[in-house]
């Protein structure tokens, strides 16, 4: 059962991710990315990471991708004629290098079989999900407290930076 779900979700994710980079219209690639994010969230459910799955849905599907779509619709882009950046030879080189990296990764995964002591958790019921979330937050606020604070500081900096960037005037939209 779990295997079947895995293969269905994996097929969804791969097809949608491929569509993201192949489709000519950026709005459609954003929509495909949303679908692939949602499939990935369900895969996190399958891996018993309930809180992370819901955060994935809220942050990626609920906020980040809506932002992408909004910006794309604001731009009102015309249909792109050549969507890829390079010629045949350079493009082939790029794909070959990506294939090389994939092969390297797959080879190392193949050789790592049996290195880990696998002890998967059981399927969690409603109570177990609560317990897991609680443990997660305890770890976050004790062991990773410094990282958490640093992240908060980073977010503040980025908020200021984005406001500063979006105030740039120029080009066709300049008022003065």
């Amino acid at each position: 059962m779990e295997g079947l779900l895995f293969y269905i979700l994996a097929a969804f994710i791969l097809v949608f991710s491929l569509a993201v980079i192949v489709v000519a219209n950026p709005i459609f690639s954003a929509l495909f990315l949303v679908l692939s994010m949602i499939s990935l969230a369900f895969m996190f459910f399958l891996l018993q990471a309930y809180f992370i799955a819901t955060v994935q849905l809220i942050v990626y599907a609920g906020a980040v991708m809506v932002l992408f779509l909004m910006v794309l619709m604001l731009f009102d882009l015309k249909k792109e004629i050549d969507i890829f950046s390079s010629g045949q030879r350079l493009g082939g080189l790029k794909i070959a290098s990506a294939g090389l990296l994939t092969g390297l990764l797959l080879w190392s995964i193949h050789y790592s079989i049996g290195l880990f002591q696998l002890q998967p958790e059981k399927v969690l019921d409603a109570q177990g999900q609560m317990e897991q979330t609680k443990t997660l937050s305890v770890i976050l606020f004790t062991k990773y407290l410094f990282a958490f604070e640093a992240l908060g500081f980073l977010l503040l900096l980025i908020a200021i930076g984005v406001v500063a960037l979006s105030r740039i005037k120029g080009g066709t939209h300049a008022r003065d």
Partner: peptide, 25 residues
């Protein structure tokens, strides 16, 4: 393996696409 494949797809997208927003995606 699935993760490696998604990563490579993303990498090809970053290298090949022209549109800045698709690169971000």
């Amino acid at each position: 393996i699935l993760s490696a494949l998604i990563f490579s797809i993303g990498m090809i997208g970053v290298m090949m696409r022209k549109n800045l927003i698709v690169i971000l995606m």
